[in-house]
Write a protein that binds this DNA or RNA. Structure first.
Length: 780
DNA sequence: TCTTCATAGTTTTTT
DNA sequence: ACTATGAAGA
């Protein structure tokens, strides 16, 4: 264990002050890259050194990953044995544990299911249908968002329908039935012994409100509370913290109002802005020195965020080297953007590892083009977000089997797997089951389990199949406590027929499904192993299931770490991370800021999001925007993002679009890419309809050099030639640095550019632009 | 009554 | 590209 003095020597003045003040509430405003995690970890280590028992420290983070990393860092200071005891995790994982402990007090059993967004959607959809409402008028996502927002404000269903103002507002929104839907949703969740993410926070509050003894138990237990990313907390979370810290006020919240990017999820920036009012005796610490990025990046980010209003005043600065300007590049299309990034990554890779590089985008949908370019350029990458492992169909199916065995009332799980793999229980039968259950006010399982009592009207064959299904599930239930998680899960998945079905499917897809199922079992095995080491007790299925629903893609274990990879993720997912080199792609209006963000408040949040993106970069930052982008099934014209003009021009290096640059020194299908772009973008029909495509309306903007894009070159057909200016002819033998030797099969010109088609000995035919490809003529 | 095949409509960000 | 519905076959 480090000595006190050593511990403090690693900190700068303001960091040290923040670490040392623990007598009352404190607010630490931590600019990007200012060593926020350092303060948090040192503070915890310090508290422990001062004699506070580790388990009396509650440390709340935003992601599981953040919690894990923090625990590791603390462990390196105070040792694993001690670090393990700290209460550290996300709101959902920590309070999920409490909720299971006290489940009976709030009308659940300890094995309640956590519904993910897919489950919630599916449930709400069926509720809307059952209610006979128009699905156009009541869109599931809209309804769920509204309910989510209510829950975040601790408005339970019964309160909701009794609130005159809310009901009037709903009527004005043409959705008078919202309250009714909320009621039904809550009832169905309860009947299923299930909660969604928002419920977990809501019920924690209900638990604390209705059971002061329980609250007091935790108030006494936790002597110090730390909250990371405080700017992203919502009202429900705010209140939980407030209650827990009520008696002693030993509370430290850390955050950066400039990085508040989750208001769509109910995060309320006022929590952090109002903290000082809430605790007048609070001490404020500002961490303003950025240790992460170059001066250029910090200053550029400052100039950007300065365009927002209502922030806590602070001056983030860097004493690192000045660094390179931020490169802003306009490219022709989303595809070219991918190749342009790939190209730049190649040159960075001469010096730096792929691990030092990240590509950030606003929406997950943008990843595909980028992935494409990476694959074609043979750049290894790792992608976060999008479909996570646990969202894949076969995995979700398998998990639902496990869920059902653990909690037979789980209606969504039952609906999902009752006919997967197909066992002759179709829609009609399911309909009858559901109707009967809802009519009698019982769970679907009860009807399924005892169809005769509920007069379920099905054929004898169907009846037999239902009984068969029920008995499969039932047979595993007796082993919930006497088999370990892995063994039981394996048995369940085997008996489900999912594995058999995947094996019988000879296609590549079937193969991968089989592998994924194996992978799931491996994950359960790994989990059991490490959990067993910690506790020394048999790890049960419920232990695994309690964690798995709170696992997100961010938390996935590092894959084969031996190959270095470029990281691809959304800006949201990148929060808290840093990379030597950052590429921000798709910096266009309608995309970043999103077309869905219209109000000033929303735009400011998008601006903060861009701020987060910029400040991920340690050394260099590369921004690109495309002229045309394929989105929602069509090609759109795009203009550069307004945020680009928010950055002080002195920090930017604006490059013109460099069309038709050979993207990778000869990517395999460059010709195809090129041709496709011609068709969708440069085609005559398109140009006739949109003469302004050539850029006239764009160049009128104030920042000409920023907004101006190179004219789209003429689309004259390639002309065939026999000899290039450098002496290359058809039939010449050439050599390429990457592809080796080859024979020139064709030579063409395109405007001023020369292009050669070369058949290489080993890698086949490539189309190369002579301007860029490094070809040596071996034999003319 | 169930399954399979074809066609149409979709996409912000996430614990 | 990916799901969600609908129609026809079994």
């Amino acid at each position: 264990m480090k000595k006190d003095s050593e511990l403090l020597n690693d900190l700068n003045e303001s960091q040290r002050e923040a670490v040392l003040y623990n007598e009352g509430p404190s607010l630490v405003i931590a600019g990007a890259g200012s060593g926020k995690t350092r303060v948090l970890t040192y503070k915890v280590a310090w508290l422990i050194q001062q004699g506070l028992p580790p388990e009396s420290i509650l440390s709340l983070t935003f992601t599981n990953k953040a919690a894990r990393e923090m625990r590791e860092r603390i462990a390196s200071m105070v040792g694993w044995f001690v670090a393990r005891r700290i209460f550290m995790g996300t709101f959902h994982s920590v309070f999920g544990r409490f909720l299971r402990t006290h489940a009976a007090l709030i009308g659940f059993t300890p094995d309640f299911t956590i519904y993910d967004t897919t489950d919630s959607k599916s449930l709400m959809k069926s509720i809307i249908k059952d209610a006979g409402l128009d699905e156009k008028q009541y869109k599931t996502t809209t309804v769920l968002n509204r309910i989510s927002s209510a829950k975040n404000h601790l408005i339970a269903a019964r309160v909701y329908v009794n609130d005159e103002n809310i009901m009037r507002a709903d009527r004005e929104q043409q959705m008078p039935m919202l309250g009714e839907l909320y009621m039904r949703y809550a009832d169905r969740c309860k009947m299923s012994n299930a909660m969604d993410f928002d419920d977990m926070l809501l019920f924690t509050n209900i638990l604390f409100r209705d059971h002061p003894d329980v609250l007091q138990q935790y108030q006494d237990f936790f002597q110090y509370i730390l909250v990371d990313e405080y700017q992203d907390t919502n009202f429900a979370q705010y209140l939980i913290i407030k209650k827990l810290a009520e008696n002693h006020h030993r509370l430290c919240v850390v955050g950066d109002d400039a990085q508040s990017i989750y208001s769509f999820r109910g995060a309320n920036i006022d929590n952090i802005l109002g903290f000082q009012k809430q605790y007048p005796e609070c001490r404020l610490f500002k961490l303003e020195q950025n240790y992460r990025s170059t001066q250029t990046i910090v200053n550029a980010a400052n100039s950007l965020i300065g365009k927002n209003h209502g922030q806590i005043r602070k001056h983030v600065f860097s004493e690192n080297e000045k660094g390179e300007k931020i490169e802003v590049k306009g490219v022709y299309s989303d595809m070219e953007e991918g190749f342009s990034v790939a190209n730049d990554i190649r040159s960075l890779h001469r010096k730096d590892s792929y691990e030092d590089i990240a590509i950030l985008y606003r929406t997950n949908a943008q990843s595909r083009v980028i992935e494409d370019a990476m694959r074609k350029s043979a750049i290894p990458y790792r992608i976060y977000g999008g479909l996570s492992f646990y969202q894949r169909r076969e995995i979700k199916d398998a998990i639902c089997y496990l869920r059902l065995v653990l909690n037979t009332n789980d209606e969504e799980a039952l609906k999902r797997v009752i006919n997967v793999p197909t066992r002759g229980i179709g829609e009609t039968t399911l309909r009858k089951l559901l109707d009967s259950a809802h009519l009698h006010g019982v769970s679907v399982w009860e009807v399924l389990h005892d169809p005769i009592s509920f007069n379920l009207n099905v054929h004898s064959g169907t009846s037999r199949r239902l009984a068969e299904f029920a008995s499969i599930i039932e047979s595993h239930r007796q082993h919930l406590t006497d088999r370990d998680a892995y063994t039981l899960a394996k048995e369940i998945i085997q008996s489900s027929g999912l594995l058999r079905e995947a094996r019988e499917d000879e296609s590549a897809e079937g193969k991968s499904r089989e592998e994924n199922l194996e992978e799931l079992l491996n994950a359960i095995h790994d989990f059991s192993d490490s959990r067993y080491e910690e506790t020394g007790e048999t790890v049960l299925l419920k232990d695994f299931m309690a964690e798995v629903s709170l696992q997100t893609d961010q938390d996935q274990k590092e894959d084969d770490a031996q190959t270095e990879k470029v990281t691809l993720m959304t800006v949201h997912a990148a929060k808290g991370l840093e990379f030597k080199h950052v590429f921000i792609v798709g910096m266009e209006e309608e995309l970043f800021p999103s077309n869905l963000s219209r109000t000033e408040r929303e735009i400011e949040e998008e601006r903060r999001l861009f701020y987060v993106a910029l400040t991920r970069a340690k050394q260099t930052c590369h921004i690109s925007h495309a002229r045309s982008r394929f989105r929602n099934g069509q090609t759109n014209l795009c203009t550069p993002s307004r945020f680009l003009s928010d950055i002080d021009l002195t920090y930017l290096d604006i490059e013109d679009s460099n069309l038709f640059r050979d993207p990778s020194g000869g990517a395999e299908t460059y010709e195809d890419e090129w041709l496709r772009e011609r068709q969708t973008f440069g085609g005559a029909v398109f140009r006739r309809e949109h003469p302004e495509v050539l850029g006239s309306h764009i160049s009128t903007s104030e920042k000409k050099d920023l907004r101006h894009l190179k004219k789209i070159p003429t689309t004259s057909a390639p002309e065939r030639r026999t000899e290039a200016p450098n002496g290359m002819r058809i039939g010449s033998v050439v050599e390429h640095a990457n592809f080796g030797k080859g024979i020139v099969e064709d030579l063409t010109t395109l405007g001023n550019d020369w292009r050669a088609t070369v058949r290489f000995e080993h890698v086949g035919v490539k189309n190369l632009l002579l301007k860029f490809a490094k070809l040596t003529i071996l034999k003319p």
